[in-house]
Structures are given as C-alpha cells and as structure tokens.
Design a protein around this nucleic acid. Structure first.
Lengths: 339, 339
DNA sequence: TTGTAAGCGTTATCAC
DNA sequence: GTGATAACGCTTACAA
C-alpha cells in the first residue's frame, strides 16, 4: 500500500489539506508546520500521486508524441530519434514527461494521436508532420514539427526546406553540375516536397530544364523498385553528374548501387544529402550533408508546446530552425571540365 | 468542457454507474440499455478519462521506459531505438502506452526511473541494463533488458552475450585468425563485458594467450582518445589480423581509421561486429555482423512486463532472445596463408 | 437489471 | 494558520 497524503497528515498530526499546502509552499503556513511536514514526508517516502493531482486540476505533466506511419518503423530513422531526444531534453527540464504514441502497422498516426488525446493522459500533442497526421484535435493544444499540410494548427516548428533544397542545388551548380537528379521525393513527407520545390526553383533560375524522370521517389532506404530506374538512369549516356539526396542512408545506398554499375562517387557522380548521420561521416566518400538540426527542432517544439500550455504563448507561432552544411568529400567540382 | 460519463448518463436517462457498466460490458445489463449507451457515447464522442479510471483501480495503462545514461544521447544508438520500437509494438497490441524517462545530462537513469515510479503515472518499468540503473523499486514491477548487475529483479530478457562473443571469436579463428583484438569493451555495459568473456573463453580454449593491450574500450563511437592506441596497435609489426567489434558504427569508424594508416578491411584486417545496422549493409566492405534482434528484445520484455502485471507470470523469468549472424564481406579467410 | 453512495488521492473553497 | 468539505471523473459494493 502506497503512502498517501493522509498518512503524512496523521503522522504530523495535522489535516491533509495542511500537508498539501505545506508541500506546495502555497498559502501561508507556519514555518514550523511546514518543516515538520517536509521532514515527515521525506521519512515516510511520500510522493504525491500525479493521477489524483491531474484529476483535480484537469491537466497532466505529460505530452504525447506522435510519429508518422506506424510509430514502430518510424523510430528507426535517425532523424526521428534525434527529434525525440530534443523533445525529451526540453521536456525534462520543465518536469514534463513524454508519452509515445505506439503503433503496430495497423495504426495510422492519426489514430494513435487521437487515441492519446482522448485518453486524457496527455495535455498536449507534438507531432511530426505527415500525410496521415491527425487534423486538429479537440480541446488539446498541438504543435507540429514540419509544415502542416491539411492542418490548421497555429503552432509549428520547421526548417526552411524550400530554401535548403535550393541551396543544395545551387551548391552543386556552383561546382559545374547541370545534370542533377533529385532522389527521395515522397508525397507523404512534406519535407521532401518542399525541398523539391527549392530544387525546382534553383534549376529554373539557372535556366535548366526539369527532367521529370530524374525525380525519383525512393523511400528512406534503397530496397524499392526504384533501384531499377536508378540503374537505368545512370547507365544512360547523358546520365546525371550529381544528385540531391533526401537522406544520408539513401546516399550510402546510392553509392553502393553506383558501385555495382561501375560508377564512383564523387568522381562520376557527386552527392549532396541530408541529415548528417554518423555513418555518413565515416562513409567513403564522407558525405557532404545538411544538418537540419533535428535535436533543435525537438527542443523548440517542446518549448513552444509548454509555453502554449502555460499560457505564455497565445498567438500563432512559427519557429524556424536553421540548418548548416557539412562539407565533406562527396561532391566534386567539375566546373573546369567539359560538360 | 470535455464530455463525462454523467453527460452520457443524462442523455440516455440512466445513472452513471449504468453507463460505466454498459461500457465495460461487465455486469448483466439489458441489451437495450447497453446499445443505447454505446450509441449515445459515440454520438457525444465520449471517452472515459483514464486518469480517473487509474485513480480508482490503482493502476495505469502506462509503462515507463528507462534508457541508460541521459536518455537524450542514449536514443541515438540504433540498438536502443530498435528496442524501443519493439517495446512500442508489443505495448500497443495490448493497449498500453509508453512513458519515456527523459533526462538531461544531469539525470542518471536511476533518478529518472525512480522519478517515473514515484509519479504514479506508470504501473511498470522496463529498463535497459546499465551501471546506473536503479535498484529494485518499491511497489512496482520492473523488467530488465540485459543482464541485471547489482539488481535483484527476477524478470529479465537478454541475448546470451557470452555465447555470441565466443561465436564471433570462433568464427574468426576458423578462418585462420589468431591475433584478434576486442574493440568496444565498456565496464558500464554488461553486454560488452559478457561478450568479452566469450572472447576470452574462445581464445583460451584455442590456447591463445590474451593480450590485455588488445582489449580496447572505445565508446560506441570513435571520437575517443582510444583512437591513438588503435593507431599504435595497428602500426606495430605483429598487429591484429582481425577484430571483434561491439558495434557496427564503431566498425565503420574503424575502417576509416585503418584507411588513414594505409590498411584495408578485410584484406589487412578482418572485422566482425554487432547490431547489423542498415549503414553497415551498404558500407564497404559490407559488414559481417551479428543481429542480436533488438526489436525482439523489446517485444519480449514488454510482453513479460504485461504478463507480470496481469498476474499471468509470477515466477522469476528469464527470456533468452536468439541472435543470428549476417555473413558479409568484412571477414577474410586467411587460413591458407602464413601466420 | 438498475440506482445510490462511497471512495480512489489530491487540491480549492470556505469557514473558523 | 488550519481544518472540514466538496469536487475532479470514474468504478464498485450494496440496496432496491
């Protein structure tokens, strides 16, 4: 049987309400009683039951976290776990907890999110933008990481993905590349469609015609039928000299695939990619990659959430998290050479 | 204002307790009333407040998850996130939620765990074995993933790490290697010390003397001062021909380091490692690696936890999760060659 | 089969 | 300052 506030009260010889007040340092309490209460509480190893507390003041210190797709596979993506870390750090600093929306394959993130919200366990929801994200939920604040799609939530945190897509493409063009493939386009993830826009803008600005067949939509790994398309594309005579790749893992897979057909990065094909994962640093060639600061995305999102909950933030808010380019060895400057 | 059980009761024209019973399909209720209740509940979008429920029956449907070190960095390890996925899948199937023990650097996993337990939010704790894991907590079941160290918890789930360490070493010896280095020893993680024991057993059984200077204790990345030691070791004339490496990321880092000093894997140094991460598959050479089934570890741990909670399991239980070797290209058979 | 009442552990309101 | 009392939303004897 756990020790309750009543036990403490009895031990001290006061009423439960007095104990409660003493513990919250709230109202006016005699120094003496306060001290005795604290002491006894410690001796008895008393810890207030958060459930009961939450019940009375209709809010919990738990924030629900929803990842796209089935929460299962989603966590495998390094980007996601970095975000989660950020969320956790920020939450813990303000004494909040994280409740993960779990899910087997059958459960969409919308369902999982709604589920959490309805349970009453959480007093806020942070979600990673995705096609299957829930629309605005009743009675519970939510902040989105990424750009909301069909979602009217006024609070979100994101990189400027259009811009980073443009910069990636420009970076390649400045080094003489004009035949540039876009790898990793996926309707379901706004990040990729945003970056694609940047890519398109950059190319158009440079007067380079888009080649729809060079937009390839591989998932975040390379086990898809798109592989065959890639092989064909790179086997062709006027194949791309560079690719903008949505994820380092994808890029690593790509170098493998290129190797199979006798091409090397960066000598034959330059690669610029995203997420700056550890393995990419050690990979050969070391990947030139944008760090989009997932940890910071998480931190910012959680702080925004808690500000909304506490009432510190009321107006619609968008927080932009900066990205940085890690220049390494996967991009070759071919501006001297013949095109 | 959220809709409560009273609202439903009023709408149907019965008492709250009747609604409660109808919803839990518990006691004997007239079919008619039950149907009306269900219908109205749906119309009103009623969802029972879990907090209130938990308060009454003194248990929640939340399991606390504690990772070693500060939960922040810990999640970055692919092994850990795979475990978390497994935990999540199993939990969701039985309608449980996961509460993450968050933590900044200041918080040990013991503190974080105790914290969760005391909050009353969770009715069980799953933890990854680690030096700083909390000892047995009062009044709340816990299951450990990994071998408990200074911990009397009767429930745990693990691979046979001694065995896998032995098999890794044997695998190398069967291919002619006799000078084998052990990379990634870390007192804090029982996995590594267990595997080291296996390594020791294998070597001893083969009559090979242990070389203490060939036990190197790199963290799960290669940014440590141990690098210098490694460089020295491999620069020496009778350097190792193979290494047992505790993690694929480490192995990837190692190949980089070897490259710096003009050595290649597997021609000069064979590598067998653990965790079978995606990047390792695409790495060059593709890593021969043990898949220790982290997902399954998570699933098993969660199922055990829920069985304990439900009373289905009472006796001390140890579940061993099998591992499998993924043979790829990072080990060379040198048994023909001169030693 | 259904309603009434008590209680889960805490906090807030109101007296004293 | 401190102590009753009610209330948070729900479940569960016990009555009816």
């Amino acid at each position: 049987m756990k020790v309750t506030i009543k036990d403490v009260a009895k031990a001290v010889g006061v009423s439960p309400s007095t104990v409660s007040r003493a513990l919250r340092n709230n109202s006016r309490i005699s120094q003496e009683v306060r001290d005795r209460v604290h002491q006894v509480a410690q001796e008895l190893d008393f810890h207030p039951n958060q459930m009961a507390r939450s019940l009375v003041d209709r809010k919990t210190s738990i924030i629900g976290i929803v990842f796209p797709g089935d929460a299962g596979q989603s966590l495998g993506v390094p980007f996601h776990s970095a975000v989660l870390q950020g969320l956790g750090c920020a939450a813990s600093e303000r004494h909040y907890h994280l409740l993960l929306a779990t899910g087997s394959e059958a459960v969409t993130s919308a369902d999982a999110g709604r589920n959490l919200a309805e349970s009453g366990y959480v007093s806020g929801l942070v979600l990673l933008a995705a096609e299957d994200a829930p629309a605005r939920l009743p009675h519970i604040p939510m902040v989105i990481i990424g750009r909301p799609l069909h979602n009217e939530t006024p609070y979100f945190v994101d990189n400027d993905n259009v811009k980073v897509g443009r910069e990636a493409t420009d970076y390649l063009m400045q080094r003489g590349h004009r035949r540039i493939l876009f790898l990793g386009y996926d309707q379901k993830f706004v990040v990729t469609t945003d970056r694609y826009q940047g890519y398109e803008q950059a190319l158009t600005a440079a007067g380079i015609a888009l080649r729809p067949d060079w937009i390839v939509s591989s998932q975040f790994n390379l086990n898809s039928p798109d592989n065959d398309r890639l092989r064909q594309i790179f086997a062709a005579p006027d194949c791309p000299t560079a690719v903008v790749c949505m994820d380092d893992n994808l890029a690593i897979g790509l170098t493998g695939l290129l190797g199979e057909i006798g091409l090397n990065a960066p000598q034959d094909v330059s690669i610029i990619s995203f997420n700056n994962i550890e393995a990419g640093r050690h990979h050969s060639p070391a990947l030139t990659s944008f760090d989009v600061n997932p940890h910071q995305l998480g931190v910012a999102a959680m702080n925004l959430m808690l500000d909304v909950i506490s009432g510190a933030t009321e107006d619609p808010t968008f927080i932009e998290v900066p990205f940085t380019l890690k220049e390494r060895d996967s991009v070759l400057d071919i501006s001297g050479k013949d095109e």
